[in-house]
Simulated assay, not measured.
Amino acid sequence: MSLRPSEMQQYFVSSVIPTALAGLQSIAEDVLNDHFGYVLGIARRLRSLRSSNII
């Protein structure tokens, strides 16, 4: 037996979560830029922090 998600659940998963994640990413990038200064991109910064075992 399988249950189908309600319309509210479908809306939440298809619209609310992606919007919230984009907002959180923007906030996180602003915080990192404030702390570490601007770098070409967030992906490059995260790779360099990972390679230096900071994160």
Results as ranks from 00 to 15, higher is better:
36 F>L: 12
38 Y>D: 09
48 S>I: 12
12 F>D: 00
23 G>Q: 05
51 S>N: 15
6 S>W: 01
14 S>G: 11
35 H>W: 05
42 I>K: 04
44 R>V: 05
23 G>P: 02
7 E>D: 13
24 L>T: 03
52 S>V: 06
38 Y>H: 12
49 L>S: 06
38 Y>N: 05
14 S>E: 14
35 H>C: 13
35 H>V: 13
39 V>G: 06
3 L>C: 08
42 I>P: 01
3 L>E: 13
51 S>T: 10
53 N>D: 14
9 Q>A: 15
26 S>F: 04
14 S>A: 15
53 N>P: 00
18 P>I: 06
19 T>F: 11
41 G>K: 02
47 R>T: 02
7 E>H: 00
44 R>M: 04
45 R>F: 04
13 V>A: 13
9 Q>W: 07
19 T>N: 07
7 E>F: 10
10 Q>K: 01
6 S>K: 00
41 G>Q: 02
32 L>H: 02
49 L>W: 05
43 A>Q: 09
44 R>E: 06
5 P>F: 08
23 G>R: 10
48 S>R: 11
53 N>W: 06
13 V>T: 10
34 D>W: 11
42 I>D: 00
26 S>R: 14
8 M>G: 15
15 S>I: 05
54 I>S: 08
35 H>I: 13
51 S>M: 10
5 P>E: 09
27 I>T: 07
21 L>E: 11
6 S>Y: 01
20 A>I: 08
54 I>N: 08
22 A>D: 15
43 A>G: 06
41 G>I: 01
47 R>C: 05
36 F>I: 08
10 Q>R: 04
15 S>D: 00
53 N>S: 11
41 G>E: 02
14 S>F: 01
30 D>M: 09
23 G>H: 07
15 S>Q: 15
3 L>G: 13
47 R>V: 00
28 A>Q: 13
11 Y>T: 14
54 I>F: 08
14 S>V: 03
2 S>R: 14
33 N>V: 08
20 A>G: 00
10 Q>C: 12
1 M>R: 09
23 G>Y: 06
43 A>L: 06
21 L>Y: 04
26 S>V: 07
20 A>F: 02
30 D>K: 13
1 M>N: 10
11 Y>G: 07
46 L>H: 01
50 R>P: 01
19 T>L: 13
33 N>C: 07
11 Y>P: 02
19 T>Y: 10
42 I>H: 01
38 Y>Q: 13
5 P>D: 10
13 V>Y: 13
34 D>P: 02
5 P>A: 05
13 V>R: 10
36 F>W: 08
10 Q>Y: 01
34 D>I: 07
14 S>N: 14
33 N>A: 09
9 Q>Y: 07
29 E>C: 04
54 I>R: 11
49 L>C: 09
7 E>R: 04
29 E>N: 07
21 L>F: 08
31 V>F: 08
5 P>I: 07
13 V>K: 12
50 R>W: 05
29 E>L: 04
7 E>L: 15
46 L>Q: 07
22 A>P: 00
2 S>Y: 09
39 V>Q: 13
1 M>C: 14
36 F>N: 01
44 R>K: 11
45 R>D: 02
39 V>D: 07
24 L>A: 12
45 R>P: 03
7 E>G: 12
25 Q>R: 15
14 S>D: 14
55 I>Q: 05
38 Y>W: 08
10 Q>W: 01
37 G>K: 04
